[in-house]
Nucleic acid binder design. Structure first.
Length: 352
DNA sequence: AAGCCGGGGAT
DNA sequence: ATCCCAGGCTT
């Protein structure tokens, strides 16, 4: 053994011996399926491996090929994505699948530049697909790689400014023969050993050369700007049932919060989607034909605000006509519909 | 450049 | 209760 080992070789050796078995990772001897790589990378945007796994497998069952996905109904895709969050990803996923199927003969482009032009594919995902699916000389940088390299080189500039240095360091390390494995090894290292808190430096292939470890800075890098506190919003859910036991749901517009998803009519927390129901039916509480305030209160945390919802319920009067963009849906169908997690919480609070 | 956009696992 | 995640789009 030489006294000094090439850092990239040490990383790839660690990766070969410790690679987690992930459903979208092809065996060494089999070429990866670009559809699988693309689907997994979109799902993994700001989302952990544990969360993505069951969704990835469900999508491959429902939509085995990019052509099958392209042929699916919008609502079927939104329903399959329900609970995964960042719903613009699902809309762009479908947009991209139809583009690939209809104008690219079902084949994903194999260069970083072409991939970057597709809906839902930004700088990270374009580089990741180019490297992993096509073994191109591309160097994706995600949150894991930022952390690993900020520590390896003890980069003390706070995010996001440090991204420029990280990008340069990363590109300098990419090996010519295994760019895809290098990217995945870096991300695996960040996800399993070089974690944000309490990194397991004793098992790290770079424990001997990590500058942050030598300085005792491993746990504190990368530095981040302090975050702003989340504002708090409150709202009211209107749970309206018809004679068949179906509940009224509102399909939200495609753009914006929970775009394209089904939500119970509500007021007070999202002005653009305030419901006409209380005006249509009268919002007096505890009157014979009015709403009944339920005990249920639902708390949910979004990216940029915290939400507390109270629930009012009643049955629809005879002759009630549902407003535009509303549907009746029986609770037994909630599990397979496009209900976001916050609305699933509301349903559970009312039904149980 | 900054804000918007979900949800859940880990600590 | 807080952090942060295999980020992209919009303004």
């Amino acid at each position: 053994m030489p006294a000094t080992v090439d850092p990239v070789s040490a990383l790839l050796d660690w990766y070969d011996e410790n690679a987690r078995s992930l459903p979208w990772r092809a065996p060494r001897t089999i070429a990866p399926d670009p559809y699988h790589v693309w689907l997994s990378e979109i799902m993994l945007q700001q989302t952990t491996v544990t969360t993505v796994k069951p969704y990835f497998e469900k999508f491959l069952t429902l939509f085995p090929t990019v052509e099958a996905l392209a042929a699916a109904q919008d609502d079927a895709v939104m329903a399959a994505w329900a609970g995964l969050g960042y719903y613009s990803r699902a809309r762009n996923l479908l947009k991209c699948a139809r583009l690939i199927a209809n104008t690219h003969a079902g084949r994903f482009p194999d260069t970083e530049a072409e991939l970057l032009g597709l809906p839902g594919i930004g700088p990270y995902t374009a580089a990741a697909i180019a490297a992993i699916a096509f073994n191109r000389q591309a160097a994706p940088v995600d949150g894991n790689i930022e952390r690993v390299l900020a520590r390896l080189y003890a980069l003390e500039t706070p995010l996001p400014e440090v991204k420029v240095q990280v990008k340069a360091k990363n590109e300098a390390l990419v090996p010519q023969d295994r760019p895809g494995d290098f990217a995945q090894a870096m991300m695996d290292l960040g996800a399993t050993l070089c974690t944000p808190k309490r990194p397991n430096c004793l098992l790290c292939p770079w424990q001997g050369i990590c500058a942050a470890r030598k300085k005792g800075l491993a746990e504190t890098l990368p530095k981040r700007a302090p975050k702003k506190p989340k504002p708090h919003r409150t709202g009211t859910i209107y749970w309206l049932e018809n004679a068949k036991g179906e509940v009224l749901l509102h399909r939200r517009p495609d753009k914006g919060l929970l775009g394209g998803m089904l939500c119970f009519p509500s007021n007070g927390w999202d002005a653009a989607n305030d419901s006409p129901l209380p005006t249509l039916l009268g919002n007096r509480q505890a009157s014979q034909n009015g709403w009944t305030q339920l005990e249920a209160e639902v708390v949910h945390v979004f990216t940029h605000f915290r939400l507390t919802l109270n629930v009012q319920a009643r049955t629809a009067p005879k002759g009630f006509r549902k407003p535009a963009d509303h549907i009746w849906l029986h609770p037994r169908a909630f599990d397979t519909a496009a209900l976001p997690s916050v609305m699933m919480k509301v349903a559970k609070a009312v039904l149980f």
